[in-house]
Design a protein around this nucleic acid. Structure first.
Lengths: 201, 201
DNA sequence: ACACGTGTATAACAGTGTTATGACGCCGTT
DNA sequence: AACGGCGTCATAACACTGTTATACACGTGT
């Protein structure tokens, strides 16, 4: 049998998952190469051979975060009303906020410069935008096509929805929100762009 | 004459300003105690005697960031239409975005976990929320009183406006926005909560 | 069988935050 | 005026970080 568990890509994935575990346990501050190496069962050198250094691993971790976020958003769409219903945009927003709350360390790495001296690669950023923001654009376009929303083009509408959800998530992660009825406020906030662009009558 | 330049508070301010210079020059990653000490003309020990360690200095820097942001927002209000005009909320949002763009390092410290292992104090967070979010609440209340906006209470309305502006600023800082006409989109986004809560007719 | 190349582990390096140590000055007391 | 005590400062050391150089083991092609 072709046992490809020694493949370079496979080992990369293993190290990324080990790093993700460390990240979830100890936060971005505890994400040291020695800790990761211990978790992955090797030496710190492995990070250099597989990723070229810590920034390379951070970039992979950054991409992994977007992969998981995208996965959560797709899962939310699977149990949402059919395309064209603005409730699908609400579902995406709620999934986004849930991810930010359950994976604060990933969220900080992706949007908060949590790993010292790391800036994501242009390509990885483009990938992250594609696999998350792309979902929002698609749903916004469907709503515009169905006439359930009116206004600017799908890209701008999606950007507004994204910014609204991201703003709530980011402020919440920063401990700045303090709304008495959090869930009710989240609904109110996420619905704001939809209210602003609802069809007349 | 009473030369109080040797006051502890004065020295604290000097060190904070030195740290702010280092932060602006080298970013959060370059913010080391030895670098700060050199900039302030002393030893690393000064940070421990004045702030109890790096987290203490980071907390002071965090507060300083909100002080500067609040100052920029107040300055924007000074040249805005009189209270009750929703354009004042637009002015606050634009000042917020301008701050995020001109002081990305401060913005990252305030909202992005950019200093490793630092979490702001409860009190400092409350201060930051007060001197920035408080301004938004006041203007939102004025608009509700004047009838130029209708909808939820001032706090929720202000939270929505804040989240929208912060979301745009944060996504932009993360290199995620990529709107072709940035200024036009910023206007469109900031206006969304106002459109959603405009009076009928 | 032998050279080569690749990946790994070890150890060393510069840098970080932190802490202990010792020296200095300043203030109040006697 | 001299003393003791307190606080502040600079220096040096500690454990830790990312990174790099070195040496070793393994697999492969000839």
């Amino acid at each position: 049998m072709t046992d490809d568990t020694d493949d370079a890509d496979t080992r990369r994935r293993q190290v990324v998952e080990a790093a993700a575990r460390v990240l979830a346990e100890d936060g971005p501050h505890g994400l040291s190469l020695r800790r990761i190496a211990a978790e992955a069962g090797g030496s710190t050198q492995i990070v250099y051979t597989l990723f070229g250094g810590k920034p390379g691993l951070a970039d992979a971790l950054y991409g992994e975060g977007f992969r998981r976020l995208s996965q959560a958003m797709v899962a939310a769409l699977a149990v949402a009303p059919p395309p064209g219903d603005p409730e699908r945009l609400m579902a995406l927003g709620r999934a986004y906020l849930a991810f930010a709350e359950t994976e604060p360390a990933f969220f900080a790495v992706m949007f908060g410069r949590a790993i010292a001296g790391f800036t994501p690669t242009r390509d990885t950023r483009a990938y992250g935008r594609e696999c998350t923001f792309g979902l929002v654009v698609r749903e916004a376009q469907a709503c515009l096509d169905a006439g359930t929303l009116v206004g600017p083009d799908a890209e701008d509408l999606a950007r507004i929805c994204w910014a609204t959800g991201h703003g709530v998530a980011s402020l919440d992660a920063a401990g700045m929100l303090h709304a008495e009825h959090r869930d009710a406020f989240v609904d109110l906030a996420l619905r704001t762009p939809l209210v602003a662009h609802r069809p007349l009558g």
